[in-house]
Amino acid sequence: MPETQQKHGEIIISVENLEHSYKDFKAVDGISFSVKKGEIFSFLGPNGAGKSTAINILITLLAKQKGTASVAGFDVTRDPQKVRESIGIVFQDITLDRDMTVWEILEFHGRLYNMPFEQRRKRIEELLNLVELAAKRDERTKHLSGGMKRRLEIARGLMTRPKVLFLDEPTIGLDPQTRLRMWEYIKGVNSEGTTIFLTTHYMDEADQLSDRISIIDHGRIVISGKPWELKNTLGRDLIYLETNNNEAAVRFLKDLPSIRNMKVKSKGFVLMVNEDGSKVLPLIIDTLRNAGIEISTINLKKPSMDDVFVFYTGREIRDEGHAKTSFRRAGGR
């Protein structure tokens, strides 16, 4: 992939052994990673995994405690000013003044970053068209829908043509259709050269959008890689089985050559296989039948990001944070 290589050369975010504690709770526990220029890079993890703490350090809102971190070539502690000039941010919660108009939100932001008058006016027009809010320019933000607010925030994040755009849970609380459109915008922005650093707890979002993902849990990076690489670590296919004697079944199957790993679940177990699962199935069925074990359920599928996550963190993602947020938003309207 020569095109990808050219696109992903230079390192734009570099983090080493970053640690951050709140009193005796270690929110970020020694993470290291780097993001290349032009990439979409994701932090995938449950709420409370340390994603927001890490992002707050990178965007200079939180002072670094241990380790090193640099963004766009500038150290976040030594040169916070330069970092701030180089980045755009879309925060996790909606951060729009309810009583300012769409146009004023962008104008205010441009002025905060000291953009010259002409450039500001021109950029606002471009962005309003990009996020399809030109017709809403004089509308106060409290009258916008959730999706429009998010689009406006993305436009604001892009106002200063940042080298890196940070998106903290960009589609939290949005309906599925709006999420898909948000993904299109994010991809569009990226294709014009902006590096994107994204945090999410949605598996599909990380999978669909990212060039590379780091799965983060309890303040640590559990594994990093391209989405397909992560899925491939679980093998080519996953086979789920329920039998009348799971323990014995696992014992008989674990030495089959094509089986790379297995994982016991509450009612059954999962086999990760190295080959085409449909070719391995007859062998598995024969083996169990010969051992006198009865199969009650059998299921074959490709590994998904959810499977990757469960495998590396040992649990399903907790989604109560999302439910809470959407409840709060709905109530606030």
């Binding site: 729009l96 905060l112 970053y113």
Partner: peptide, 13 residues
């Protein structure tokens, strides 16, 4: 409290 201060504090101003 409404998060708006973050935009200002994260800006170069």
């Amino acid at each position: 409290n409404w998060g708006l201060m973050r935009e200002i504090l994260a800006s170069p101003m």
